[in-house]
Amino acid sequence: MTAQIILFWLFAFLTCAGAILVAVSQNVVRMAFSLVLTLGSTAVLFLLLGADFVGATQLLVYVGGTLVLLVFGVMLTATGPFTRIKSSPADAILSGLIGVVFLFIVASTVTAVDWDGGNGVAQKIAMGTHAKAVEGGFNPTQQGNTTRPLGLSFLSLRADRDLKLGLPKELSGEINTAPVVPGMAAATPGTTLLPKTSALLSTGYLLPFEIVSVHLLVVLVGAAYLARTKRRATT
């Protein structure tokens, strides 16, 4: 636990420092690399929160893909070495003031709310000691192994909701003995069995997944169309 807390504060500091540097820096390449710091540290925070797949995706898609694209864009649109487009000092001071006030409002709001209704559940989940959370399975992040539940949810099967785990206690006794997938050995009771009450089945994310994939294809075509080579406008 202690090591996790030290890691948390280290990467929390790096995340915030990077974000502030992005906001105050005038050099766009420095901004881009402060953004690398922020997004990379956020990925570590995701890992600390037990979301290993999302953390890795953040690194692969955001830091390794999107940011390289951004830096590429910076280089293509730079008119000279180390270009700076400055905001006026009045703008900077005003936005700084507004930012501090805004941060105060947002931060005091989110930290003032007691997110678990005074039960200390969140605290217990964080310490990994809350028996009901572990038993109920709505916290598959405990081991940090979320790849399979996530993959199943994209195939419209909610491992954490439908496979007994996470069901209300009064229903968890009523389980079907049929295997989920034909040929699958129902070896471990409680992990491979469907509830009898099929009305409780959740739908998963197959449709959004397909929509997003089509969306990505459209974006691919659209971006290629927009960025295609054209005759440059004369000055």
């Binding site: 953390g55 692969l60 830091v63 893909g65 390289v68 940090g144 192994n145």
Partner: peptide, 24 residues
Amino acid sequence: LDTGVFLTLAVLSLEVLGVILAGY
């Protein structure tokens, strides 16, 4: 890690940022 391959490829892809930074 359960995401071993994924994370390895992800971290490996960060190397390019250093190269771009060096060049720029």
